[in-house]
Write a protein that binds this DNA or RNA. Structure first.
Lengths: 250, 250
DNA sequence: CGGCCAATTGATTAAACTCAATCTGCGTGG
DNA sequence: CCACGCAGATTGAGTTTAATCAATTGGCCG
């Protein structure tokens, strides 16, 4: 198992992935859990490939992913795309919406998606009424920062095969927190084009780097999933630091 | 002047850079301003080059930069470094400190620094008592995200000269919000080694890319400062999007 | 004057990109 | 049922960008 995080007992009766995720970090009261679950009762389906947040547009609602994966990305005027991060179940898009704030990135469904849309004013309500919950969201924010920071490290200071391995390990750890891994298999719903736009590489070079990890025997690739055959080797070669995703250690 | 932000009247009697920064976004009451200023009365000096936050260490205090520049960075086991972002006066390091949270990046003084150290519990107090102030800090958080997102775009999808120009424009806009630019001159207190670690390049290639901007006449480089001679050309070639730093437009 | 740090330049090597074909699996219409 | 089209994956070949290695220069300070 990837981190000590899993030794911390989860929130009881956790139904939504957000409650499960926060439960790994902080001990919420039953009232807080119920409030948080109650927030997420308005569920919207988003078709695979569809944008549900568009850069520059005014944000109307805070979105909490219930099922499926999304990407946050920025499109450049020359047509190139940089995917900033993957949003998994329990992740929040638009947590920090302010008066007339405009989205500074787009978000799209990587797989068919179920999202809860929440009135941003109810988020402010949380910080006034539920201090534990508020600190849970604050932790979630700090974790998003750490994830984006690791993305910057990948893009700035790792080689192509390192970037790939590093990303796989990140996803493995994040999915493990949701109990969403089957041993060493993890879902990989993105195409190689999307992978390339995540890692700042060309499609061709992404393909070749993936091949090199396969040929070393470190990963097994299936359509829509990969298996991490040698986690130690992957961690060492990609310089992955698991503390960045479990900064609540001890 | 870079953005429409400057047309919004600043907070009256703004003394600390944080109040000046937030004043550009939200209209705080006199009481809120005084509370925020009062928070920042414990000032610490940090010598140039010194780390004041170390990755992995437990964070004891929230730091608000009063004077000087800092860097947030991650050091890899192989000795390479990725600078994530620059912290300017008014920026906050450790806004989202939680119970026994450990820093997931280091921070060091790029210049001699004055920082206010704040008890993190007083941050929680803000969100409970001062809703406008809380939304201001939330905006500040969203802005930090946008800055780090732009950093990922630079690292992932821009060429070396584009990365340089893009970073200069970011700093120009951020300094303008603090009224800290002298026309088109901006401070550049970092060495080329630090610039290279910011942009994900080698020192030599950074030097050559800087030379190419100079030779095109777009920038003038002095020690510790540069002048943006042709902002339009820089914006076009680097695909810079000023909205990311002024997402409160209209 | 010497030492040191930062900046600059030259030459070579390595990594990653681009262009151009295939190849493969899958669904669909004839 | 099969040919066709299409999207995604794979491979080859040549080019470009950036890294590395190696000096050299410039400024500043003791």
């Amino acid at each position: 198992m990837p981190t000590e995080a899993l030794d911390i007992p989860s929130a009881p009766n956790a139904q939504t992935p957000l409650v499960r995720k926060l439960g790994a970090m902080c001990l919420m009261s039953q009232e807080e859990i119920e409030f948080l679950e109650g927030l997420q009762n308005h569920i919207v389906d988003v078709k695979k490939g569809r944008d549900f947040v568009e850069e520059g547009e005014e944000l109307r609602a805070t979105c909490v992913i219930q099922e499926g994966w999304a990407i946050r990305y920025i499109l450049l005027p020359n047509g190139r795309r940089q995917i900033l991060s993957y949003a998994l179940p329990g992740d929040i898009i638009g947590l920090h919406i302010n008066f007339r704030a405009h989205a500074n990135y787009s978000a799209a469904a990587l797989t068919p998606l179920k999202v809860a849309t929440v009135d941003p004013r109810r988020i402010l309500e949380i910080s006034q009424k539920f201090p534990i919950l508020a600190s849970g969201l604050s932790w979630s924010t700090a974790r998003e920062f750490a994830i984006l920071g690791d993305q910057a490290v990948r893009l700035g200071r790792l080689s192509a095969p390192q970037r790939l391995a590093h990303l796989m390990l990140e996803l493995w750890h994040r999915l493990a927190l949701l109990d969403d891994t089957d041993g060493r298999w993890i879902a990989m719903p993105m195409t190689q084009t999307e992978l390339a736009d995540t890692l700042g590489l060309s499609l061709v070079h992404t393909n070749r780097s993936l091949k090199s990890l396969r040929e070393k025997g470190w990963v097994t690739v299936e359509s829509d999933a990969i298996r991490l055959n040698d986690v130690d080797a992957l961690m060492e070669m990609s310089l992955f630091n698991p503390d960045h995703l479990a900064n609540f250690s001890i």
